[in-house]
Design a protein around this nucleic acid. Structure first.
Lengths: 372, 372
DNA sequence: GTGGGTGATGTTTGCGTAAACATCGAGTGT
DNA sequence: ACACTCGATGTTTACGCAAACATCACCCAC
C-alpha cells in the first residue's frame, strides 16, 4: 500500500508515517494534528531549519531584494533539504490572485480550437500563468451556463472564450467583477475584447487567387450557421465576388466535417459550370476532393479547390491542397497578451485584433478548363 | 454511486458591477488598499447581513445538514444580495485539496492526445475537478523538467501524463508526495498506473484482417522511435506475422506525419512485392495513399492500406481508409477514474488498463492482386 | 424535576503566505 | 560624537474558510 513510491527528495521526517493512514478515529490523541502535519514543508519549517524568520524565507522565495547572499544560500539549502515548495492556495489567498487563466471551449474537435488552446497554454505558461480548461460538451445554453457557474467559483483571474459569443450572452454570466474576458471567434468586439484570424482578408485572398487564375466565379462551401467564423468567410466571399463584378453562385453549407464536404461535393460535381470552389475549411475540402474524384471531375484540371486553415495534412491531400493558412499560434499568443494587459489595466478594454493569414499555393488550383 | 454533488446554491445574480473598475492609477493615495478592498464579499459579510455566524454561512454554502430552513433562506438571500461566491483559494488552503488535476502533454498536434485530453477534462468536470493544462513544447528533458517544476508549485491534487515516460523519469521528478500520477502512452505499468489503448490487440486485428484477405505478408510503416505506442504497434505487428508463419518485411519508420508517410510511400511504391501496408497512424496512411496514387499503384486493387486511430477524416480519404478505431474518450475517462481512485486509496496503485479497439473496414483494403 | 440526549447555532482556531510595521546595527555627514 | 539613513531581518497580522469544540434551547424518560 503505502510504499514510499515517489521519493522526491529524501524528505526528512517522512520516515515515520506508521501505517496509520490517518484513519484512526479511535486514538484519543490529537489525531488531526498528526494526520495533516508534514504533508509538505511550510515556510515555517524552512525558516526553522535555516535559522531565520519565515518572512525571510518568503523574501527569498519571491526573489525580493534585501537578503544577504549568505542568508539566501542558507534558506535555499533549507528549502532543498525539506523539499519545500510554496503552497499556491495560501499564496493565492494572500495575494488575491491565482495566476490562472480559464479557457472555455466548445469541443476540441476542430484543429483551430486546439491549436489556439495550445498556444494559449504555452504563452500563459511563459507568463507564469496556468491554464484551466473548461470544456463545454454540447453548445446548449444549459451547458454553457454550467461551465460558467463552475467558472464562477473557480480560481481564475481571467477567462478566454473560444466559442460563439451569443451563447455566452445568453447564459446570464455572473463572473466575479474583476475577472477579465477575451473572446475568440466572434464579432462581439463592441462588447468584449476579441482576437481572431483575419477571416475576411484570408477569404479575399482565396477568391482573388481563383479569379486571377481566370475562373468566372467561385462557389463557396460554407461552414455551419452558428459560427461567426463561417459567417464572416461567407460574407467576405460574397463581397469579394461582388466587388469584382462577378455573380456569386448559391451558397452551399456544410458543418465543418469532411462528410459534409463530401455530400456537398456530390452536388457540385454535377454542375459543369462549377470550376472553382472555396471551402470554408480544409476538412470539408477533403470531402469535396473525394466526391469530385469519385465523380470523375479532376482537380485541378476540371475544378479548382481551395481550403481554409492549412492543417498539417493538407499538403498530403490528393492533390495537395491550396489553402489559406491561419496562424493559430499567434491568435493564442495575442489572447493571452490581451487578457493580461486588461488585467494590468493598460490595454484596450474592447475591440478586435485581427491576425493576418497567408495563402499557401499547392496543387489543387489551376486555370479553368478551356471553355469551348 | 454519485459523489456528494455539492449543489452549493443557485448562484446569485450578477446585477450591479457598479462601474468602479479601479481606474485611478494616478492617485497618490494608498492604492493597494483600495485595489483589493471589496473585490468580493466574504463569508463574514454574508454572515453579518444575514445575522448569523460565518460558520452557519459555511454550512449553507457546503450544503451541510443542521440548518433550519428559515435560517438557510436568510443566508441564501444575503448571499444573493452580496453576490457572494466562495473563495476557492481559501477553501483549498483550509481543506488541503484543490480539486484540480494537472495534465501534462507534449503538444496537442496529434488527434489522440487531444481527444484524450478532452475526455479527461469532461470526466474531471463531471467529478467536480478542474483540469490544468501543462503543455511541453518540445520533448527535451529541459522542457519536461520545466513543466514539472511548474507543476510542483501548482495547485493540483493529481497528475495525468500524456507522454513518453522515459522523459518523465529522466526529469528528476519531485512532486509533492501526495500527488497521484497516471500515465497514458507508456509501458511503465510497473512504476505507474497506466491507461492506454490496446495497441497490441488493435494491431493484431489489422494484420489478421490483411492476412485473411489473402496477403502473403504485411509491410509496416511504424511511428517514431521514441514512442511507446509506436513501439508496441511495431512489436505486435512483428509478433502477429511471426505467429502466422509469415516473414516480416523490413520495418519502415515515419514520424506520425503525413509527409513522412508520403516519403515512405514513394519507397514502398517501388516494391512490386508489397501488397499490404499497415500504417501506425492515419496521417501517415494519408501520405502513403498519396504516394501510391502518384506512382500509379491503385488502392486497394494493387496495394491494401490500413491505418490506426480512425480520425474523423479517415472516411473521406481516397479511398476511405480501413483503420483501427481507438476509443480516446474511454481512455480519458479511465484516466480520471484511475487517478481519483488512487486519491481515495481504493484503487490499484499501479498496473495497466487497456482499452479495446475496433477494426473499421472501409475501402482501402482488398484481396491482393492475382499473382501470375 | 433532573439528567441526558439532540439539533441548531456560535466561537475559536489555524491552514501558509506576504504585507505592513518594528527593530537593530552599521555606515554617513556635519 | 550625534542624529540620521539605510539595509537586513524579525514580529504581527489578516487573507477566507471550515474543522473542532462550545453553547444553548428544547424535549424526553424516569
Amino acid at each position: 500500500m503505502d510504499t514510499v513510491e515517489r521519493t522526491p527528495v529524501d524528505l526528512p521526517g517522512s520516515d515515520a508515517e506508521p501505517a496509520g493512514t490517518a484513519r484512526d478515529t479511535a486514538g484519543g490523541a490529537p489525531a488531526h494534528r498528526r494526520a495533516r502535519a508534514r504533508a509538505t514543508a511550510s515556510m515555517a519549517d524552512v525558516a526553522r531549519l535555516a535559522g531565520v524568520s519565515s518572512q525571510t524565507v518568503s523574501r527569498v522565495s519571491n526573489g525580493y531584494a534585501g537578503v544577504t547572499e549568505e542568508t539566501r544560500r542558507q534558506v535555499l539549502a533549507a528549502m532543498k533539504e525539506l523539499g519545500y515548495r510554496p503552497n499556491s492556495a495560501a499564496r493565492a489567498l494572500k495575494r488575491g490572485e491565482f495566476r490562472t487563466i480559464g479557457v472555455i471551449t466548445f469541443t476540441l474537435s476542430t484543429t483551430g480550437n486546439v491549436r489556439t488552446l495550445e498556444a494559449i497554454a504555452t504563452s500563459a505558461a511563459h507568463e507564469g500563468y496556468a491554464v484551466t480548461l473548461l470544456p463545454v460538451a454540447v453548445p446548449t445554453q444549459d451547458e454553457v451556463r454550467g461551465a460558467f457557474s463552475r467558472l464562477e467559483e473557480l480560481a481564475v483571474d481571467a477567462v478566454i472564450v473560444i466559442m460563439e459569443v451569443h451563447l455566452l450572452d445568453a447564459a446570464t454570466v455572473t463572473l466575479p467583477p474583476h475577472v477579465q474576458v477575451v473572446v475568440v471567434d466572434s464579432d462581439a468586439g463592441d462588447h468584449y475584447t476579441v482576437v481572431d484570424t483575419d477571416q475576411a482578408g484570408g477569404t479575399r485572398a482565396a477568391v482573388q487567387h481563383l479569379l486571377g487564375l481566370g475562373h468566372r466565379t467561385v462557389w463557396h462551401l460554407g461552414g455551419p450557421e452558428g459560427s461567426f467564423a463561417a459567417q464572416r468567410r461567407t460574407d467576405a466571399w460574397h463581397a469579394a465576388l461582388t466587388e469584382a463584378g462577378r455573380v456569386p453562385p448559391p451558397l452551399i453549407r456544410g458543418d465543418w466535417s469532411a462528410d459534409s464536404g463530401y455530400r456537398a461535393g456530390l452536388e457540385l460535381a454535377a454542375r459543369d459550370e462549377c470550376t472553382a470552389v472555396f471551402a470554408a475549411n480544409d476538412q470539408m475540402a477533403l470531402g469535396l476532393l473525394r466526391a469530385l474524384h469519385e465523380r470523375g471531375r479532376r482537380v485541378p484540371e476540371d475544378v479548382s479547390v481551395i481550403g481554409f486553415d492549412d492543417i498539417p495534412e493538407a499538403s498530403s491531400f490528393l492533390p495537395p491542397l491550396t489553402t489559406v493558412h491561419q496562424d493559430f499560434a499567434e491568435v493564442g499568443r495575442l489572447c493571452v497578451q490581451a487578457v493580461l494587459s486588461k488585467m494590468r489595466q493598460d490595454g484596450p478594454e474592447r475591440g478586435t485584433t485581427l491576425v493576418p493569414t497567408r495563402l499557401v499555393r499547392r496543387a489543387s488550383t489551376a486555370p479553368p478548363p478551356e471553355t469551348t
